[in-house]
Amino acid sequence: MTLDIEVKGLGVSYGREKAVDGVSLKLPGGKIYGLLGRNGSGKTTLLSVLASFREQSEGEVRIGGEAPFENAAIVNQVCFIQENGHIAEGYRVKDAVKLAASCWPNWDEAMAQRLLEHYQLPQKKRIQSLSRGMKSALGVAVGLASRAPITIFDEVYLGMDAPSRYSFYEELLRDYMEHPRTFILSTHLIDEVSNLFEEVIILDQGRLLLQEETESLRQRGVSVTGPAALVDEFAAGLNILGEQRLGGMKSVTVYGELGPERERQAHAQGLELGPVPLQDLFVHLTKKGGGKR
């Protein structure tokens, strides 16, 4: 079973500051979403509202058609894992797991134990004495074993070393295929995980910049390289995200598909068209002053 998420005109303020401003989204259930944004773009705030960690100041949130805040039927379907976790520091690993097991309706104890062993988490150690990577691994284990129809990882895996991260991606993917549900992964390191995402959502300064299928977003960016004058002429009127010069040569990153007509024109003028990695596209889109659609 999957749950759809719908967000309309969402606003969250901290005092006078607006952390999230007028965000509207539809996230059909059963997909892996990537939530991207620079630090302070409102990712965590948005996710906190989805998980009912806080109530929105404006707008509407619907999960499975219902308002989630303080709704017992919904909050136990949404598991939100943050890097530092929320379990009291004095708890032992096994207490934290026992608590989680008692709360999540679809808890998979076998999986939890397998992951604890896999990440070599000592059952008797207290949370406060775990390393950053171990805390992350505990979060990952609890998040995956919760089998919550909506499972959210907020940059948890950043504290893990590369082998642990890769095994996390594998576990997540495998479990997702066996038990389809919604995953939302927030990150600002895109290269490693972008292949996992079916859709990408980009927030910038509290606003929704775009929501798009990862594969079509990949095709949105084109780099045009050639003699500066020619490139300028070609790119006039296009949505330019960034440019670089090297001597008389120039390379611009253009957002939006060119279409066959323009591509032919570029080839005819001897301009080189190249792909733009998702990470670069993200950097260009969220650069200050850039990134208007």
């Binding site: 960690f53 909050v75 136990n76 379907q77 929320h86 999540w104």
Partner: peptide
């Protein structure tokens, strides 16, 4: 926080 983060209402 321990309980709310484990899907329990306030």
């Amino acid at each position: 926080a321990s309980f709310v983060s484990n899907g329990v209402t306030r």
